[in-house]
C-alpha cells in the first residue's frame, strides 16, 4: 500500500504526551486535532483507533505534509477558524501545546468545548520549579525544552500554570473530567505538588451541560 507509515514513528514511539492524549480518545469517534503539526498524532489515531480525524495547522508545510499522508487537514488557526465549526461537530477536539500561543485562550477554550463533546488540552506548566528558579535565581525568562524560544522571538504569549488553567475552567463552568500532570519525559506525574513539579498539564474537559 502507498499509505505506509513513511516518516511517522510506530505508535509505541509516539511522543509521551501524545500517547497519553491518544489514550483518552475512544476508538471510532470523530476527532479534530488543532495545531496538528505534521500529523503524527492524527495519523496514529486514524490508523490505530479508526477515528474519523480532521486537523488544523498554522504552518503550510505542516498542512501539506498531512495531506500528502492522506490526512484531512486545513490551514488555519485556533484564534480565527474555530467559529465556523458547528457545535458538537466532534467527539473530541485536541489542542496540544498550542493554547499558550493563541491570542485569546479563553475564547479558544470555549470554542473547544462547544465544537467537541470533549476537549483535550495540554500546555507547558509555567509553575514548574525550574521556571520559578530561573526567574528567581538567574533573573532570566525561562528557556526549557517545551519553551525553547528567547523572549523576543517566542510565539508563546499566554503562558499559565496548571493551577491557573484549572481556575479558568472553574470560572467558565467547564467540567474537568480528568487532569494529568506530566514530567519532562511526558510520563504521568502522580505525586504531590504537581503545579511545582510537573512540566505539562493535560486536561480532558467538557462543557457543563
Amino acid at each position: 500500500m502507498s499509505m505506509d507509515a513513511r516518516n511517522f514513528n510506530p505508535p509505541s514511539q509516539l511522543r509521551g504526551d501524545l500517547r497519553l492524549v491518544g489514550s483518552m480518545i475512544e476508538p471510532q469517534t470523530r476527532v479534530l486535532d488543532i495545531g496538528c503539526g505534521d500529523g503524527e498524532l492524527l495519523y496514529y489515531l486514524v490508523h490505530s483507533k479508526g477515528v474519523d480525524g480532521r486537523g488544523m495547522e498554522l504552518s503550510q508545510s505542516g498542512v501539506n505534509s498531512c495531506v500528502r499522508h492522506g490526512l484531512s487537514v486545513i490551514q488555519g488557526d485556533a484564534d480565527n477558524d474555530l467559529e465556523d465549526y458547528p457545535s458538537d461537530a466532534f467527539d473530541y477536539v485536541v489542542l496540544s501545546q498550542t493554547l499558550q500561543a493563541t491570542r485569546k485562550p479563553r475564547e479558544v477554550l470555549l470554542n473547544l468545548v462547544r465544537i467537541g463533546r470533549h476537549a483535550i488540552v495540554s500546555f507547558p506548566n509555567f509553575g514548574h520549579w525550574r521556571i520559578r528558579m530561573g526567574l528567581l535565581i538567574a533573573g532570566r525568562l525561562p528557556s526549557t525544552p517545551l519553551l525553547p524560544y528567547p523572549w523576543h522571538e517566542t510565539p508563546n504569549i499566554h503562558l499559565c500554570t496548571i493551577r491557573d488553567f484549572a481556575l479558568l475552567c472553574r470560572d467558565e463552568g467547564i467540567r474537568v473530567e480528568k487532569s494529568v500532570s506530566l514530567d519532562r519525559f511526558g510520563r504521568p506525574y502522580t505525586r504531590a505538588l504537581a503545579n511545582l513539579m510537573a512540566e505539562q498539564g493535560l486536561f480532558l474537559l467538557s462543557r457543563a451541560r
Binding site: V63, N64, C66, V67, S72, V73, Q75, G76, D84, Y85
Partner: peptide
C-alpha cells in the same frame, strides 16, 4: 473551506 467546515464536511486545504 469555511463553508465546508460550517457544514462539518471532510475537507483538506492546501495553498501551494
Amino acid at each position: 473551506v469555511h463553508a465546508l467546515n460550517a457544514a462539518a464536511a471532510n475537507v483538506s486545504f492546501v495553498e501551494v
